[in-house]
Design a protein around this nucleic acid. Structure first.
Lengths: 142, 142
DNA sequence: TTAGTAACGCAAATGAGTTGCACTTATATA
DNA sequence: TATATAAGTGCAACTCATTTGCGTTACTAA
């Protein structure tokens, strides 16, 4: 599905209005290799764009299954674009996240196989997250 | 090693003073099955105990290898007692953490085997964290 | 074209965590 | 045992991410 259809379909399905800001925001995620925080997003828009609007848009996008939260070194809210298999209110991410200690960016490692255990010592496991820390490909070769 | 020796040895080694508050704080961790946040700790002490003291003590304890940070549903700082194999400034935790969606507590799953990969697609992995979400043993049987 | 409502901008609030500073107290040693 | 010193404390003020209330704007569907 291309970006325009994705926006059309999903925005319609969830009663989200296709405002200039939200369309731009979505494109920003689409064009970004990695994840984005509210502060980073803010820098990409004119100063008249309010942070409240950014936070509300991120929240809507997440609930609609367009983006998902990823871990952040400094405990900030940080998001990445979802793959197509993500359903609204039911993110189906089975990938690991990688925090680079050098550039501090967060990467989705889409092909890292997660352990599939559904329980452990009586604990019932619904979701499992793996967060790796280290040096990313790019920083390694600098 | 019993708690009194542990406090004596570690506090001495790191030049930490055995104040009434810090001894009580350490006991609180020792007696607690799970993890503690600053707010939860605050409730256990008189109102004259300042939050700055709590945060500073937690920071010292962590640096000394007595407690370690654990994940929290709401991105709060949250800590658990370390096992004896932890060294100061070099926490050696190879266990997974479990967040219960019912009681919202965090548990250390000491015997869950973590993947041991040291690299993945050119990403160099130094540390690896596993965070599980689901229903804990206790809540499951209620 | 227009009514209804999602989204917006602005301002103020919230709340976790931090910092500066003067005072207190544990500890080491004389 | 007295005392110096440096760690720890309490208080107040601060930072900064995120949230909320509210009146206004602008999509969207009819």
């Amino acid at each position: 599905m291309d970006i325009q259809n994705l926006i059309d379909n999903t925005f319609k399905k969830y009663g989200l209005k296709k405002t200039i800001f939200r369309k731009e925001l979505f494109k920003l995620f689409y064009d970004s290799l990695n994840s984005l925080s509210a502060k980073e997003i803010s820098k990409q828009f004119s100063s008249s764009t309010d942070k409240a609007s950014i936070y509300r848009a991120l929240d809507s996008f997440e609930k609609s299954g367009l983006i998902h939260q990823v871990p952040d070194k400094n405990n900030l809210l940080r998001y990445s674009l979802c793959k197509s298999e993500c359903k609204p209110n039911n993110h189906a991410h089975d990938h690991a996240h990688f925090l680079c200690s050098v550039c501090e960016e967060t990467f989705c490692l889409d092909d890292f196989k997660l352990p599939s255990a559904k329980s452990h010592n009586g604990f019932l496991i619904n979701h499992l997250k793996i967060i790796m820390e280290g040096t990313c490909v790019r920083c390694k070769s600098i």
